[in-house]
């Protein structure tokens, strides 16, 4: 038979697959360990009087939620968006503008955040997902720039200077902005996003996205319309990122057009890549590394961006699977 392979060769061929499977398992275990460590972090840090670092970790977790949503697009769908930060801004501004009109009801704010981001993702996704490769990169960038310049132009919401948010979100009697609880709310959201991603990756939907990334023609040939599933993914990712913007608005009480600039979008890509594309832990690892470099290096030298840039080039050149890939031995 032409289709049988020598028995001796088979185990070797199976190992690449098995190595991958083990790497995925380690990734999942690492996710639980990381989440547990994050849960203990505020207690440990406050015991040492290091509340400042709790805030850094909190910021990292918010960024990680945004990065995880981008990782979903890049890692599963192969959709490299250079405009993902627009959703951070949409989340922040939807919250801030409502607060500006004295609406601090968290349920209304959250509905507005999710509704606005879903609508924006749907409309822009319908156009952007018709394009491929670098055109997709540029068109997502273009849409983000449109929102960016819109917010700069709207002086009544702060324009260039950004919008200060005077009221944090109230869910009934619960104030989302309270520092002691916000950390755990964000951690809970992050946990749901990370584990949700782990599950999606193994679902029908994940398989379809991966297949469409690998060979679009094959996916259509068996009878799926890749466009519809990508659009669904794009909307889910946009809403998730807007949720991070909502949390960030409650954390910093401030939102600026800068949060939507292409530089922020590039930073999100950086976090995804440094952490490890298509891994569960990648976004939080990448976000922690990103902020720790900023805080630690920023304390040492005002020129830390230089070393940061070099680090970035080195990562892309040498560690193509990101830090999580280095640790778990998986391949992209």
């Amino acid at each position: 038979m032409p289709n049988t392979i020598p028995a001796r060769a088979r185990p070797a061929m199976l190992t690449s697959r098995a190595v991958q499977a083990r790497a995925a398992d380690r990734d999942l275990v690492a996710a639980f360990v990381l989440l547990a460590l994050l849960a203990a972090t505020p207690l440990v840090l406050s015991a040492f009087g290091q509340e400042f670092w709790t805030d850094v970790v909190l910021r990292a977790m918010i960024l990680a939620i945004a990065a995880a949503s981008l990782n979903f697009l890049i890692g599963l769908g192969g959709l490299v968006s250079l405009g993902h930060a627009a959703f951070l801004g949409i989340g922040g501004y939807a919250t801030g503008i409502l607060a500006d009109f004295d609406i601090d009801n968290g349920f209304i704010q959250l509905a507005a955040v999710l509704g606005a981001s879903a609508l924006f993702a749907l409309v822009t996704g319908m156009v952007a997902l018709r394009t491929k490769g670098v055109h997709f990169i540029m068109i997502t960038l273009a849409f983000a720039q449109m929102v960016y310049f819109t917010m700069i132009g709207l002086r009544q919401f702060g324009g260039d200077d950004g919008l200060t948010i005077n009221y944090t979100s109230m869910f009934g009697g619960f104030d989302l902005g309270r520092k002691d609880t916000l950390y755990y709310v964000v951690l809970a959201v992050l946990a749901v996003v990370m584990l949700g991603y782990a599950r999606l990756r193994k679902s029908d939907f994940g398989l379809l996205l991966k297949a469409a990334k690998g060979n679009e023609r094959r996916v259509s040939a068996v009878g799926f319309d890749p466009y519809r599933y990508r659009l669904a993914a794009y909307v889910v990712a946009g809403m998730t990122c807007a949720l991070a913007g909502f949390l960030d608005a409650n954390f910093t009480s401030f939102v600026t057009p800068g949060s939507m600039s292409w530089i922020t979008s590039a930073e999100l890509i950086f976090i995804v890549i440094v952490g490890g594309v298509a891994t569960i832990c990648g976004p939080i690892v990448g976000a922690l590394v990103f902020l720790l470099i900023e805080e630690i290096m920023g304390g040492v030298t005002v020129y830390w961006h230089f070393w940061f840039g070099l680090f970035l080039i080195a990562i892309v050149l040498f560690a193509r699977n990101g830090l999580v890939g280095l640790l778990t031995g998986g391949r992209r």
Binding site: V80, I137, A266, I269, I273, H305, G309, V316, L317
Partner: peptide, 17 residues
């Protein structure tokens, strides 16, 4: 293109600094 975007973004950071 993803790698290119990131690497050249790194170059921007280095040069600006």
């Amino acid at each position: 293109h993803l790698d290119q975007v990131l690497a050249t973004f790194g170059m921007v950071l280095c040069a600006d600094t």
